[in-house]
Structure formats: C-alpha cells, structure tokens
Simulated assay, not measured.
Amino acid sequence: MPLREHLLEIRKRLFLSSIGIVVGAVVGWFLYDPVFHALQQPLLDAAAQNNTLTTTNFGGVATAIDMKFKVSLFIGILVSTPWWMYQLWAFVNPGLTSKERRYAFAFLGSGVPLFLGGAWLAWWVLPHAVKVLTDFVPADSANFIDAQLYLSFVMRLVLAFGIAFLLPVVMVALNFLGVVRARTWAHGWRWAVLIAFAFSAVMTPTPDALTMIWVALPICGLYAVALVVCTVHDRRIDRRVEALAP
C-alpha cells in the first residue's frame, strides 16, 4: 500500500475511533452523577475511618462543567473499548494474510477484557492508595482536595493500567506477524520485570511494598503467558519450515 493510502487509512481509522469515543462520551454525560460519586467514594470512606472532613473541592466557576466533560470522555473511552480496538485491528488488516486475519479476531477478543481487567485492577488499588495517603491528615481536620487534580489522577491511573495490560496482546501480535521472535522477548524478561515493578511503584502512590507487588505480579504473569504463546508458535513455525526444507 502506498504511503498516501496508509495516511488516508490512518485518518479514517482515527476518525471512526473518535466517533465511537464521542458516542460513548454522550452516554457518559448521562452517567456522570453515579460515576462521579463512585470516584469520590474512596475519599469519603477514608474520611469516615480517619474521622476527618475530606471532600473534593471545585475551586473555579467553570470547574464543575469542565470536570463533567472530562469524566464523560473518560467513560466514553472505556465503553467504546471494543470499537476503537477494532479500528486499530482494521488498520493492520489489509496487510495481513487470511490466516493472520483470523488471529486478529483472537487478539481483539483478548485485548478488550485485558484492557478492562487492567482498569479494574486500578480501581481495586485506588481505595488503598487514598486510604494510605489521607492517613497523614490530622484527626478532626479538614482536607479539601482539588476536584480536577483528584479526578484526573484517578482517570489517568485507570487508563494507564488498562494500556499496560495490553502488553501481552502486542507481544503475541508482533510474534505472529513475524516481527519479533520469542527468544527476543525471553532475553528481555529481566527488563520486563524491572519495568513492571517500576510502573507499579509510580502508579501506586502508597509507601507499602505489598500493594506494589500485588500490582506488578499480574503484569509479570501476563508477560510470561505471552512468552509461552510466542514460544509455542515459533516452534510450530520452525517445524513447518524444517518439514518443507529439501
């Protein structure tokens, strides 16, 4: 495919992905109130346990409407996950063989639950992080947290974990397309573990090592599973090549 057609295809897929996210954001606009209360609940629970007044503070005139747009967009990205991931697959699809296209459906089917699983893990980590961080507020004190900073932190956390959990899908896809061999992933396992723990340390702002370990272990486990899949695939390809050799 010529470069111009590639660029046109990218534009098309980005446009369709944006349309799906916008439609999801419209749905998110009507779900804003329950989602906002769910995002704020870890703060309220921590305040009740610590006997402190902790709540989000909308410091500007337009802060509330700005946050409603941001949270709606965040919901739109989550609910439209199958759609924008399909657009990513559709961009690669013209360059694939018929057999590789069948693999792509499997990648799409695994990528969506992995992304949502990573988002769920971030949601599980959030109350623990909020609890630890608000423990430093003195008793009978008030802690007014800027709504934009808090909600932006929560949304970035959820999206970052969702994207991190797509790592095995990318690994297997590159292997099945013949771009990266399994031995390359195997040689880099130490770096993968280091990056997983560094990512967990940065994205879980709590001083306890246990939470960091519980977050890093699933990422390392997914890397290992993807490595096994890539290894099995490479061995099957090698046997096929040997059988065809004169």
Rank of each mutant, 00 (worst) to 15 (best):
Arg4Cys: 03
Glu5Pro: 12
Glu5Asp: 10
His6Lys: 09
Glu9Gly: 11
Glu9Tyr: 07
Glu9Trp: 12
Lys12Pro: 04
Arg13Ser: 01
Arg13Val: 02
Leu14Glu: 00
Leu14Gly: 00
Leu14Tyr: 02
Phe15Gln: 05
Phe15Lys: 07
Ser17Met: 03
Ser17His: 04
Ile19Asn: 00
Gly24Met: 01
Gly24Thr: 00
Ala25Arg: 11
Ala25Glu: 08
Val26Pro: 00
Phe36Lys: 05
Ala38His: 08
Leu39Arg: 01
Leu39Val: 03
Gln41Arg: 11
Leu43Arg: 01
Leu43Val: 13
Asp45Met: 08
Asp45Arg: 04
Asp45Asn: 03
Thr52Glu: 03
Thr52Asn: 02
Thr52Val: 04
Thr55Tyr: 10
Thr56His: 01
Asn57Asp: 02
Asn57Met: 09
Phe58Gln: 07
Gly60Ala: 04
Ala62Thr: 04
Ala62Gln: 09
Thr63Ser: 14
Ala64Asp: 06
Asp66His: 13
Lys68Phe: 10
Lys70Arg: 11
Leu73Ala: 08
Gly76Tyr: 13
Gly76Lys: 11
Gly76Ser: 05
Ser80Val: 03
Thr81His: 01
Trp83Arg: 00
Trp84Pro: 02
Met85Thr: 01
Leu88Lys: 10
Trp89Ala: 02
Val92Gly: 00
Asn93Thr: 06
Thr97Lys: 00
Lys99Pro: 15
Glu100Phe: 10
Arg102Leu: 15
Phe107Cys: 02
Ser110His: 03
Val112Ile: 12
Leu116Gly: 12
Gly118Tyr: 12
Leu121Pro: 03
Leu121Gln: 09
Leu121Thr: 07
Val125His: 14
Leu126Arg: 04
His128Gln: 07
Lys131Met: 05
Leu133Gln: 15
Phe136Leu: 09
Ser141Trp: 13
Ala142Met: 13
Ala142Ile: 11
Gln148Asp: 15
Ser152Asn: 10
Met155Ile: 15
Arg156Asp: 13
Val158Ser: 09
Val158Gln: 12
Leu159Met: 14
Gly162Gln: 07
Leu167His: 07
Pro168Gln: 07
Val169Arg: 12
Leu174Gln: 06
Leu177Asn: 10
Gly178Trp: 03
Val179Ser: 05
Val179Lys: 06
Ala182Lys: 05
Ala182Ser: 06
Trp185Asp: 02
Arg190Ser: 11
Val193Cys: 09
Phe199Ala: 14
Met203Val: 14
Thr204Glu: 09
Asp208Trp: 11
Asp208Ser: 11
Val215Met: 07
Leu217Asn: 02
Gly221Pro: 15
Gly221Glu: 09
Val225Thr: 06
Val225Ser: 07
Ala226Tyr: 12
Ala226Thr: 14
Leu227Ile: 03
Val228Thr: 13
Cys230Tyr: 14
Cys230Val: 08
His233Tyr: 15
His233Ala: 11
His233Lys: 14
Arg235Glu: 00
Arg236Pro: 08
Ile237Asn: 08
Arg239Pro: 00
Val241Ser: 06
Ala243Trp: 10
Leu244His: 06
Ala245Gln: 05
Pro246Asp: 09
Pro246Ala: 10
